[in-house]
Simulated scan of single mutants.
Amino acid sequence: MIRVGIADDQEMIRLGLRAILSAQPDMEVAAEAADGLSAARLAAHGGLDVLLMDIRMPGIDGVEAIRRIRRDLPGSALRIIILTTYGHDENVLNGLKAGANGFLGKGVGPDELADSIREVAAGGGALSAAAAHVLIGHVGESRDVVADPALVRLFDELTTREREVVQAAVNGLDNAQIARDFYLSPLTVKTHANRAMTKVGARDRAQLVSLAFRAGFRPGD
């Protein structure tokens, strides 16, 4: 059972998320917080597998709460997904740098949300298409455009299907969209993505996209 915490200052949002997640056979909402400080305390108490974190909250915001969690609990296995309406570039970058394992918009559907939680709980990452494009743009601006030969060699070890899945992730597609495009099941797509992450040493989907860009992958290829 995946134990999920919800940190959001809007009660209606928390109620909606609780209803969605409580309907999943493998999830339970174990705790809730209405501000950033309370969210950090939830993490400190332990017992959660995944924490859904809003950005804009009273006290400290979600990004600062994540920074404190990662600083104060360096060995924690807690996985954190930012779930927000504020998908601005700086929020994406700051959230991922602070230690978030995923970034999703609140417009995400119930099935995609549940699948993202499962993926993150299993050690993967979850990025909305918009967040993936922001990450790619940041890497492109901050690094030389010449591909890193060592990373190129690592990605050359991927199978054809694994490379196709990586390219689709670079294009900003989620697992469900990749599955539809390649006529595969979402589970098969996840398997290919996880194998690719293992082979190139990526800790999650965000880092996989970043490493792929540095290996020469580009959106639209």
Rank of each mutant, 00 (worst) to 15 (best):
P25L: 11
L17G: 02
I136A: 15
L21R: 06
G75V: 01
G216Y: 07
N101D: 15
A129E: 13
T160F: 06
Q167D: 06
A30F: 11
Q207S: 07
A131T: 07
S116M: 13
V170T: 06
F217Q: 11
I69F: 04
Q167Y: 04
D144C: 00
N101R: 07
V145Q: 13
L83C: 09
A65P: 12
Q177K: 15
A215V: 12
I136G: 09
D144H: 04
D49I: 07
R14W: 07
E157V: 04
P219Y: 15
V146K: 11
S22A: 10
G16W: 00
A121T: 15
G46I: 02
R163D: 00
L83R: 12
L173Q: 14
A132I: 10
V92K: 11
I60H: 08
T159F: 07
G201A: 02
L78A: 06
R180Q: 05
G137Y: 04
K190G: 11
D54V: 15
A31T: 01
R70T: 03
S185K: 13
M1K: 14
A100G: 09
Q177L: 09
A65F: 09
V4S: 00
D61E: 03
H192I: 01
R3T: 01
A31W: 02
I20G: 11
R118P: 07
I178H: 00
V120W: 12
A114K: 03
L151T: 05
Q167A: 14
V170S: 01
V134Y: 06
R180T: 03
A168Q: 01
L151E: 06
D9T: 08
E90R: 09
D35A: 00
G125A: 07
A33E: 02
D61R: 11
L48W: 01
L51E: 09
